[in-house]
Computed example of a mutant assay.
Amino acid sequence: MKILHTADWHVGKVLKGRQRVEEHKAVLGELVETARHEDVDMVLVAGDLFDTSAPTPEAQSLVMQTLLALREQGERDVVVLAGNHDNAHLFDVYRPVLGELGIHVVGTFRRPDKGGTLAIRARSGEDVRLAVLPFLSQRYVVRAAEALGGTAAEHNRMYAARFAQLTAALTQGFADGTVNLVTSHGTMPGGAFGGGEREAHSIFSYYFEPTAFPTSTQYAALGHLHRRQQIPGPCPIWYSGSPIAVDFGEENNTPGALLVDVGPNRPAKVSEVAVARAVPLKTVRGTLERLSALPDDGAWLRVFVEERPRAGLAELVRGMLPNALDVQLDERFRPVSATRAKGASPGAARSPRELFRDYLSATGKADGAVTSLFDRLYDEETS
């Protein structure tokens, strides 16, 4: 059978104040086209469909339309689990409605017989056993009473041990004649971070070990780390990565998904699928002259300006580079904090005009137009 493994859509993400709804529509549309072109039998969406736990109606609408399109009117199975950015209880609200449409949704941990382990007959004819572990907080896995005692390292080990226990319970039904799959959302040791993962949920307190997955697993589909990668372990363990770079820390990632070819009693064969419609993110730096000569390749830009600070500099850059979302001074040109002369009392023998000019000079922001404006405003207020 063929599986499309994707995760970390982060629909609703705002980048430096810029809405990205149209980008997400294009990217998710490309995933739907990939599922059709490759004629996959199943789609696994391993968490973080939304960027926040309170998604806007527009974000929810786009995700629902995408899931229905992936379902293709019953042509393929679609399985969705909640990530750390998602609202797990909201997913449980979706669950009965989407379940009627054949879309399997798991928001919170469920017992094997209550939806934690899915028994599916694939369109291609194989019997599938799929263990689904949504993001599990440490508070959930390590009970509060137990967390009151012990060290942080002990709590970390306890989280990993409890995760392994839960996985073992969900994978008990794995057999030789079935396609045995696990999907989850979280952090594994040795995984390379993409840049946009939520730091508080990427620390050792939330790590689980590859050994949590039994050797009978043909494929483990993970979400949370935004860089597509394989993790060494007792079975094929992969992060699909995000189909869209969520911040400038991910500009070197290749957005995409994974195609998985798997059958009973054999490890999965995995191939990478790039997503071409994601708008790239790029960091550029230089003087105004150099920046003005840059070609417009459509990328969102983070700009480091190699100029002394002055009023209106950021506006000048954005005028030259309309896609500049973040404009900063290169660290070599950043002003130092103004310091008071040793032994001088605050404002001693200096007028407000002099104080203002001294401040601009000390911080590297001296500008004749700004001082003239200050003088005019000061005169208006004191006359």
Rank of each mutant, 00 (worst) to 15 (best):
M1I: 09
M1P: 13
T6Q: 07
V14E: 03
Q19R: 14
R20S: 08
E22R: 13
K25A: 14
A26F: 01
E30W: 00
L31V: 04
E33M: 11
R36T: 09
L49W: 01
F50L: 02
T52E: 06
S53M: 10
P57N: 05
V63C: 12
Q73P: 00
E75I: 02
D77N: 08
V80G: 01
V80S: 02
H85F: 00
N87M: 03
A88N: 00
L90I: 01
F91I: 05
D92S: 07
Y94D: 03
P96C: 08
V97E: 07
G99L: 08
L101V: 08
T108F: 00
A119V: 13
A119K: 14
E126Y: 13
V128E: 06
L130M: 04
A131P: 02
L133C: 09
P134T: 02
F135Y: 10
L136N: 01
R139K: 15
V141R: 03
V142T: 04
A144S: 15
A145S: 15
T151H: 03
A152K: 14
A152N: 13
E154H: 10
A161V: 01
F163C: 01
A169K: 12
T171I: 08
Q172E: 15
Q172F: 07
G173V: 08
D176S: 14
N180A: 05
G186S: 02
M188Y: 01
A192L: 14
E197K: 05
I203L: 13
F204W: 11
Y207G: 00
F208L: 01
P210C: 06
A220M: 08
Q229C: 10
Q230V: 09
P234G: 14
P234L: 05
I237N: 05
P243E: 09
A245M: 11
E250K: 06
E251H: 09
N252V: 11
N253Y: 11
D261M: 04
V262G: 07
A278G: 12
V279N: 08
P280R: 11
R285G: 04
L294P: 02
P295H: 07
A299N: 09
F304W: 15
F304S: 12
G312R: 14
L313D: 02
L313Q: 03
A314T: 12
N323M: 07
E331Y: 11
E331H: 10
E331N: 06
V336W: 03
S337L: 15
R340D: 07
K342Y: 11
A344Q: 15
S345C: 06
P346G: 01
G347W: 00
E354G: 08
L355M: 12
F356K: 03
R357T: 15
A362N: 06
A362I: 07
A366W: 09
A366V: 04
G368D: 15
G368T: 10
V370P: 00
V370L: 12
D375V: 12
E381G: 03
S383T: 13
S383Y: 00
